[in-house]
Design a binder for these strands. Sequence first.
DNA 1: CTATTAAAATACCGAACCGTATTTTATTTA
DNA 2: TAAATAAAATACGGTTCGGTATTTTAATAG
Lengths: 206, 206
Amino acid sequence: MPRGRPRKIDPNDALKAAMNILWERGYDRTSMADLVSATGMAKPGLYANLGDKDEIFQKALRLYQEEIGAPPINDLVTSPEPLKQSLRTALRGVLHAKEGSGLPEGCFIVNNSFACSAQSQQLKQALQDLNVERRDAFLLRFRRAETEGELPDSTDIKALADFFAGQAAAVSSMAQAGLSLTELHKMIEVSLSVLPEDPPRGGAQG
Amino acid sequence: MPRGRPRKIDPNDALKAAMNILWERGYDRTSMADLVSATGMAKPGLYANLGDKDEIFQKALRLYQEEIGAPPINDLVTSPEPLKQSLRTALRGVLHAKEGSGLPEGCFIVNNSFACSAQSQQLKQALQDLNVERRDAFLLRFRRAETEGELPDSTDIKALADFFAGQAAAVSSMAQAGLSLTELHKMIEVSLSVLPEDPPRGGAQG
DNA sequence: CTATTAAAATACCGAACCGTATTTTATTTA
DNA sequence: TAAATAAAATACGGTTCGGTATTTTAATAG
């Protein structure tokens, strides 16, 4: 056993709890006192283990991205699923909360990308980078779709990637507006209808 | 002339200035001190003329809706333009800032609908109501489109309305992510492609 | 010029905020 | 037990916040 007084709370657990409350309440509306009660760790302990509020937020952001945000996006790029199905999965990935109980609704990144106009430049940049990362994942998938014939060559895949990156915000916003899960799924189906009819079948292009 | 010391600042001008900074920075990141310097009106004057911070925000919200938010939505419902064109106009209406100089980017309502999980119930409700209002305007337009044959009867116009209401957030978010105006317009064109092809002519673009 | 009115300007208050210095407590080593 | 270590718990400091009480200033009315 280590030397001094034993830890009451594993810093990793604390970070996870911090992520959840930051996800739920956002950066501005979460105080250090909130983080203290959410984590069960006293303030000096938080600073010693996780740093100041900005650092905690950034660590929470990374944790979210690694454990929650990135997987569906990586699947999007790597999975052999057909285009439309992989996009469906990716978009539904924004709705963790409503299905898997307990988790906050919407996307942590999107939710905090608003109301950040005067945020610390570091945080602003970190959020923008993650948004770009998601957009690029879509782009990558569309490039593959193009070469594999899932999309006509004439497609403006850059615009398509921007569009789908934006759908994360669309879905998050309507989730916060109180739509039910099935309504949100219908929204997503509408988004998917911007794609050409499922098997594009050769050169049907106009 | 009235009795006492003359006003330095017209309360209407102050409200307009307050709206702009609240739009730009959001509720949480705008302090009363910010409102003081933005309006040029000292704090006690603000309270006397516009009320406390919540009241000012609500008044700003109403002003935004009346002067900026509602017009393109009303046009959507009332104008005789064909469906797709009226939707295009409505969605582009979210991008005031980038075209008409000076105005903040994105939609005031959308920008503040995030990070409000613990906001005062009043404000939360006011924001939700405005979001619903917009969604209903889309719905109204789609109902008309259905009866006028602009949409097939089989269309799920409720889902379509949710989708387009969500596009306000999509566009706002990508605007904040730094997309150019033409990129944003392309995004909007992609959104519009969920509609059934009207008489096959060349794609409109701006 | 004096009184009155109404707004501006200043100064102030208590609470909440982020962050830290200090003390207590629990454990291991000697 | 006593010294040493490391974490928890408490208390505190400076700042900013939303909101208000108080004073000063600029105008009109008599």
